[in-house]
């Protein structure tokens, strides 16, 4: 997972492409995370590979390319860092997370409504009336489509 909004002292270190530098750091971090997860797996030999051989090789390669990116960012000019819009991120991802936890117990209608309304908050020109009407329409449509027409095992209402 990339860390949020990295502040790289671009000019100070002579980094000419802060975006690549940060990207390289992210790759290194992922490689480290992978290595930590597979530290206990046996590596075996190239001819008789253990479960750890292939992922370890990949993790090292990933780290290597992270370093290449970082090294390149000192030499070649490139893009700066982009800003992260945390509000949209939290609203959209949060809406999905709510749906995930609600669907089995609260059913399609309630969790679907929560998903659509929370995610709609991320829009910059929010019109409540329109959103509510549209959400209701989409929910009716999905209830007819998924549990009824396609016969998928989805609870429609909360289980009481």
């Amino acid at each position: 997972m990339p860390p949020p909004q990295m502040k790289v002292p671009a000019a100070g270190l002579g980094i000419r492409s802060p975006r690549n530098f940060a990207g390289g750091l992210v790759l290194l971090a992922i490689a480290a995370l992978a290595l930590w997860q597979i530290q206990d797996l046996s590596v075996g030999t190239a001819m008789r590979m253990g479960p750890g051989y292939y992922p370890r090789l990949l993790a090292f390669l990933l780290g290597f390319f992270g370093l290449v990116l970082m090294a390149g960012s000192v030499v070649v000019h490139g893009d700066g860092l982009e800003r992260w819009r945390v509000k949209n991120l939290v609203l959209v991802l949060g809406a999905i997370v709510i749906f995930a936890f609600a669907i089995r117990t609260l059913g399609l209608v309630l969790s679907g409504a929560a998903l659509m309304l929370v995610s709609a908050l991320a829009s910059h020109d929010l019109r409540w009336r329109e959103v509510l009407l549209f959400t209701a329409g989409m929910l009716v449509f999905s209830v007819i489509l998924f549990p009824i027409a396609l016969n998928l095992p989805l609870p429609i209402w909360p289980r009481l």
């Binding site: 936890f101 609600a102 089995r104 117990t105 289980r159 009481l160």
Partner: peptide, 15 residues
């Protein structure tokens, strides 16, 4: 823990 809470909710849902 949230998942556990959700499971707990469904247990309360009545035998």
């Amino acid at each position: 823990s949230i998942a556990l809470a959700a499971v707990g909710l469904s247990v309360l849902a009545g035998p």
